[in-house]
Every structure is written in C-alpha cells, then in structure tokens.
Amino acid sequence: MAALNRYLLQILGAGWMLFLVAGWAIAYSSPGSVVLIDRSYCAPTQWQQVAQAYERHYQTSRLQTVILFNDLSQENLSPAPTPSVVRNLTTYGRSNPVRLSELQRIYPNAQLLNCRS
C-alpha cells in the first residue's frame, strides 16, 4: 500500500514538474513583443491616452523592447520602461514617416503607439 502511495506521489510530482517546465518553455521560447512609440510633439491630454494604451500593453503582454522615435532621434529601451516613465516622457519635434516605415519593416509585428492613432 505504501509503495503504491509513493508511486502515485512520484507520478503526480513528475506531472507537475513537466507542467511547469512546459509553461516556462512556452513563455520564454516565444519572442517578446516590441512597441514603437512616436514621441513627436503631442498635446498633454492626447499623450495621456498614448500612456494609457502603453500601460495596457505593459500589463497584458510580455514587452521585450520599446522604441521611442521622432524626427530627431531613435532610442531603444530594453527592458521596457514602466508606464509611469512613458507617462512622464517629454514629447518634442516632428513625426518621421520614413523612420516609422523603416522600423515597421524591421519589426513587422510591432505595436505602434502615437498621438494620431
């Protein structure tokens, strides 16, 4: 009887272990998502909407990289910044469609957040 109980516990333990390993493998083998944030000038009220959208992404997906860009610059942030950092970002300058197209070509699945969307 005791041998049977030990055997059952071993099966149960091994099952849980396999379950955890599979979960970990699924979580970390899939690529994290990339978010492109257009930080060209945005009125403060509109920027709060961009920040809220980012917060939703931050909480629901595993963000790997955030790319901030505008006409003057491009900055890759990894790990992804917290929502409060994005909320307090200074927006300045013009949007740059050429840079945006290039980024979307490199990261076809990236989520774009900007003032105009």
Partner: peptide, 13 residues
C-alpha cells in the same frame, strides 16, 4: 508651430 516650440523647450531644459 508646436513641433518647433517643443524642441526649443526641450533644448532649454
């Protein structure tokens, strides 16, 4: 324009 103003403000900081 706000685009130009915003760069100047960020620069001045």
């Amino acid at each position: 324009s706000p685009q130009v103003n915003s760069v100047f403000d960020a620069f001045q900081k």
